[in-house]
Write a protein that binds this DNA or RNA. Structure first.
Lengths: 228, 228
DNA sequence: ACCTGAACACCGTTCAAGT
DNA sequence: ACCTGAACACCGTTCAAGT
């Protein structure tokens, strides 16, 4: 129903669409309902428009997803830019990466999308440029910095691939039959359950494990830096 | 056209479908044409059947993909089982992971799928059980082995997330304007191009970088093992 | 210029029906 | 039991048409 403006009532003049509004809507939808809710029809609906209208602001769905990733990466760069300087390259890199991680924890769909996108996000590239800058200031050769980026992989941006999410019942799914074939995993689970009772379901603290892996890499890099 | 058997000619009695045939066909399709070719209709077509027939052997598409991942993981476990024993936990783990990687290089679609699947593959779990076994024999506590699995992440199975694939023109895409904002990445690229001319496009040797990161982690773990 | 409706080619999947 | 055709609800996208 199209209505002309009425006196004394909000005319609802519907903001015109724009690339930025489209991308922000996609991000908001993914934040709230997950990636599978991000369809052209749904995004348009949220904006009070038709699916086809989006194509005037975004080349196609791939471009829309690329744009959404770029928006999140910009948020990371802004968070990282606000960080106080810290002495020591290792601490500086560590804090920067954990700050990036904080942003990604607010957009849990983003890591998977980032690793799927084929086009590279300018903001993601920018993030890595600044990270190399931090390493250079810490005394890294470009060659070692390059290896460092590869070694860190997705950890540089604050996430790492979790192969199983023990949260959804890794142990619960272990039938007695299956367990018999998995002596080491069962041993690991039972011992840790004994040391720390009540932690068997969802027993892996993601943050702790992420930092463990990160520190292992940073320590190793520091050693290579000192005696190449 | 349905034909009755004719004398002197192959009757083409079409093998009956089976879960195994369905899964193998899915893997073969993905190997040859990539994941996007794996649709219910296409898999059925390849088997000379209708899409709906697959549902008698596989619960739905998700189950089909889970099964395909499991098939690849089984291939990894078989390859790994054939490895000669090696002294030293670090070398043993290293060789096992690189053997897993060799298998995944034959199924390039599999890593992405493995990290997307929500259900856990029995064969993937089995792989990790044996890996923990190797660590235990090397003197790891269950606690350190647990941290080690998390630290290795997808590297344990032989892959790691590449954020950009420099193969598709990372440097080519750098306009002069953009480059001005990326002093460190440009510096890195130009220096390495100078040291190793002709390697600018696709200059990152995936295998070398994978092993660099892997060794960094294994060295770090060894240090923790010796003085906890 | 920006937006839209109808239509197309493609999904995964349900259901009732065939053998 | 195993397999199938038609149909449904949902995609992304093209196109011609509206303002």
């Amino acid at each position: 129903m199209s209505v002309t403006a009425q006196p004394g009532q909000v005319p609802e003049p519907r903001l015109p669409l724009s690339r930025d509004r489209v991308l922000r809507t996609a991000v908001a939808l993914a934040d709230t309902y997950g990636m599978e809710a991000v369809t052209m029809r749904r995004v348009a609906d949220e904006l009070g428009a038709e699916a086809m209208s989006l194509y005037h602001h975004v080349a196609n769905k791939d471009a829309l997803l690329d744009g959404a990733v770029d928006l999140v990466a910009r948020e990371i760069n802004e968070a990282v830019a606000g960080l106080d300087p810290v002495p020591g390259w290792q601490q500086a890199v560590r804090r920067r990466i954990l700050a990036a991680r904080d942003v990604l924890l607010r957009h849990r769909w983003a890591p998977r999308l980032m690793s799927t996108r084929t086009a590279m996000s300018p903001e993601v590239v920018r993030y890595h440029d600044r990270l190399v800058g931090l390493l250079r200031e810490g005394g890294f050769s470009y060659d070692l910095a390059h290896h460092a980026l590869h070694a860190l992989g997705s950890r540089a941006l604050g996430f790492s691939q979790e192969l199983f999410d023990p949260g959804d019942g890794a142990t619960a799914g272990l039938s007695a039959e299956l367990a018999a074939d998995l002596p080491y995993l069962v041993g690991m689970l039972t011992e840790i359950a004994h040391d720390d009772p009540g932690s068997i379901l969802g027993w892996c603290d993601d943050q702790v494990e992420f930092e463990f892996g990160l520190d292992l890499l940073l320590d190793g890099l520091d050693r290579k830096l000192r005696k190449p």
